[in-house]
Write a protein that binds this DNA or RNA. Sequence first.
DNA 1: TTGAAAGCGGTACCAG
DNA 2: CTGGTACCGCTTTCAA
Lengths: 324, 324
Amino acid sequence: MARVTINDIAKYAEVGKSTVSRYFNGGYVKEETRNKIEKVCREYNYQPNYVAKSLKAKHSYQIGVITPSITSRTASRVLTALDEELRQSGYTPILINTNHNRNRELQSLDSFTRMNVEGVILLATEITKAHKELIQRMSVPVVILAQKMSGTVNVTFDDYHAGYDVGMKIGKTAKHPCLVMVSKYDKAVGVDRRKGILDGLAERKVKDIDIIETDFSFDTSRQAVQAYLAEHVPDAMICATDTIALAAFKEIHRKGYEIPKDISLISFGGYTVSQVLTPSLCTVKFDYELEGRTGADLILDMIMGKTAKSVRIGYEILEGESVK
Amino acid sequence: MARVTINDIAKYAEVGKSTVSRYFNGGYVKEETRNKIEKVCREYNYQPNYVAKSLKAKHSYQIGVITPSITSRTASRVLTALDEELRQSGYTPILINTNHNRNRELQSLDSFTRMNVEGVILLATEITKAHKELIQRMSVPVVILAQKMSGTVNVTFDDYHAGYDVGMKIGKTAKHPCLVMVSKYDKAVGVDRRKGILDGLAERKVKDIDIIETDFSFDTSRQAVQAYLAEHVPDAMICATDTIALAAFKEIHRKGYEIPKDISLISFGGYTVSQVLTPSLCTVKFDYELEGRTGADLILDMIMGKTAKSVRIGYEILEGESVK
DNA sequence: TTGAAAGCGGTACCAG
DNA sequence: CTGGTACCGCTTTCAA
């Protein structure tokens, strides 16, 4: 049962092991020799070992991908696209899911360089100083998705303007909107998106604004909205993500309000479920697949030695029946 | 920028490299020597390279995980739990997403053995002969989730009995139900679950049954249901998954029917969204987290040399308002 | 306690 | 074209 190695093959095929190596890497091998080797390899079911290979070889063709979660629609869409794009270029993505454990995120960055990956893609939520330090002195290229970090290459959405457009849209009819936002530690969603919304509302002269905070989970959001609605009656709710909007949707109905007659509802995400609800949810759609593909392309460029520039991706408002 | 290696450390710390190796692997090192090494390592920011290490070492502490998708709620829940459990035992899961590409599934099995992983967990949908052959002669232990395969260790749900219970439940009031199922290539969902439902309905003497087939995607399901409803009027729809039920939900409403007055709706999954709908969806909840954790425990046992036995996991019916 | 030396399974240079 | 040989970075005897 012992692993068969290149030495075994060389011995049985009666050739040097460098010849076997050449056989597998497209070097000069005479037709006849080639056949002998092929036969022996099949017989012994030999496959060169990647670990040994990447110890000496300059390429491992592996790219590390770090994600905070795979349970979110957002992350899974980005990852799937990323994956596909990387593979098409002959690279294998190695995924590490930190499950929102910040410490593991740092460790993983480290693990990857020890695994000889050729580049790392980080699906970020929050960038701390620790991240910055570590990333600055990484020996392989790094691309950051979803958040900006000076001095690095990143792929982000235009959260500010998406927020602004939503603010302007809601500001047309609402007098007393409530924003259901996430923590400011998430720069893109918690800060930029929020600022855009507030600026958009300001443009419409809307002043009477409530802001409540939750996290990205359905349950927490539901409790937050429930607590809020117990004491306030907004005429619109602007949610940071579709999952949060789903929670708001449920609670608004439970309170007996009607959407959009009593309360307009709008959010960011563009998930499939938003169409299933009645009334359908008005939401800002981001092209997560494009984000993933772009991240993959950038890291490949960097590996090739080209200089890559950060990219910003647009958005589209999916009109729904949930807004007056 | 060149990687600092164990040789560098040995040189700078003025000790043998075997001593440095011992330092990192809990061998005998005098206090004084230990301090010298520690200092130098910190100064040069040295971290032993995993690749080189696992070439010679008996353990790589890596476990390969193959999944057909990460976009499905089901898969992502299983994976997250799996991940967490494996890490707690000091193992690192390496995830490969085949994105429903059967060929890549086979390749990945192969890749993993070449990467020196210590075991492989396969989140399966369909098991072909090619799978069987490959798995039989894998040199590391393999655990299969979600599908049964003789001669291997697997973790499955009791799809048959879950189906049976649903059949019995719907059979109480329905005379003309429609099953929206998936292909029989998926043994667990397409065959067992279906058979359970039919047996349950038979027990209730329900004879007038329609069966339509779709895949696991929302869009395909929507089309399938739409086409079906154009020509038939069932009094209940039993869907293979919650995603399919979501599609049915939308189409039933579009046709102007009421749930559950005109048509009862029930499915399998237990996703969060099912609670958000109005009426809320009646669904069979499987404990995917338990499935993941169990898979992890089994593979760890096998790696330790213990013999592991296949496990079957129960289920729970979440009552909802979508059934009469 | 420590270090020299022999691998682990490949790659790559170089002389033949 | 081919094979010998020197590594890659680390682990593991084994003798000192």
